[in-house]
């Protein structure tokens, strides 16, 4: 028999068949718009300035692959998780079956990972005709996107299981997601940040994902050794998962 978390994954995928159209924006259209609006239009001016040693289109494209992972992860681990506790109460139904809390979380994370892999791969295909993919290692970039996505999703599960109001999630998007997206090296190198702020970028997961994606898509080196980047992201996933389990247990007990 398959692992119980597979049943949760299956449940999520069945639901997804019904509403996938609405998610195309956040998971695919938004990165593409960023790619065209910033990469193509602003890129013309950046390349004229000569501040980067590679075309801006390539620079931003690779970063946006990692961004795709984080974006989908944040959306899928906020409102849906709160809703499964508060409105649909689906977790309470699951808890009444042999499923364990870890199975529920793992199954839903698996679904998020699947969504990220598909979206990142699709975005990668869009980048190719623009000459923004220059290495065969690019095939690994969607997996990096999945990893950085889960590094964000797991702790966000814990947060969503704690709060009562969706308004707080909107606040989280503004105070956590947006600054991370804007200052993690997706749009400009982290080296340009004031020295005081740089450690903050290093501490958040996205920068590590951006470094790894850029290495894969463009065949260049990373800032820190690859195992360090991977290990740090893995740490976020692990700690987030443990926190989420604790929070889920507490909420389900009420």
């Amino acid at each position: 028999m398959a692992h119980p978390s597979v049943a949760v994954l299956e449940y999520q995928l069945v639901g997804y068949r019904r509403f996938w159209r609405g998610t195309v924006f956040s998971s695919f259209v938004m990165p593409v718009l960023f790619f065209l609006g910033m990469g193509l239009a602003v890129g013309e001016y950046v390349d004229r300035g000569g501040g980067l040693d590679l075309p801006y289109q390539q620079f931003i494209g690779a970063g946006l692959v990692a961004f795709t992972g984080v974006q989908i992860a944040m959306i899928e681990s906020s409102f849906p998780v709160l809703g499964n506790f508060k409105w649909q109460r689906i977790y309470y139904g699951m808890a009444a079956t042999p499923l364990r809390v870890g199975d529920m979380i793992a199954g839903q994370l698996g679904y998020i990972g699947f969504r990220i892999a598909v979206a990142a791969a699709a975005f990668l295909l869009v980048m190719i005709p623009f000459g923004a993919v220059t290495s065969a290692w690019a095939g690994l970039a969607p997996l990096v996107a999945v990893l950085v996505g889960l590094a964000v999703a797991a702790p966000m599960f814990a947060f969503s299981a704690t709060i009562e109001s969706a308004n707080l999630q909107a606040v989280m998007f503004r105070f956590a997601l947006l600054p991370m997206v804007l200052f993690s090296g997706v749009f400009f190198p982290v080296g340009q940040l004031p020295e005081l702020l740089r450690p903050l970028a290093y501490a958040l997961p996205l920068w590590h994902g951006v470094e790894l994606c850029r290495a894969a898509v463009l065949g260049i080196g990373t800032a820190w050794p690859v195992p360090v980047h991977l290990g740090y992201l893995g740490l976020w996933v692990g700690v987030g998962f443990v926190l989420a389990m604790a929070r889920f247990r507490r909420r389900l007990a009420t």
């Binding site: 602003v42 001016y45 950046v46 501040g51 801006y56 200052f183 400009f188």
Partner: peptide, 23 residues
């Protein structure tokens, strides 16, 4: 209140960060 943050963050990131590249 958090709505204040959004445009300011864009201003700093794109205006200063990308702005340094654009000139």
């Amino acid at each position: 209140v958090s709505g204040f943050a959004e445009p300011l963050l864009y201003l700093l990131a794109i205006g200063w960060g990308v702005g340094a590249l654009v000139g």
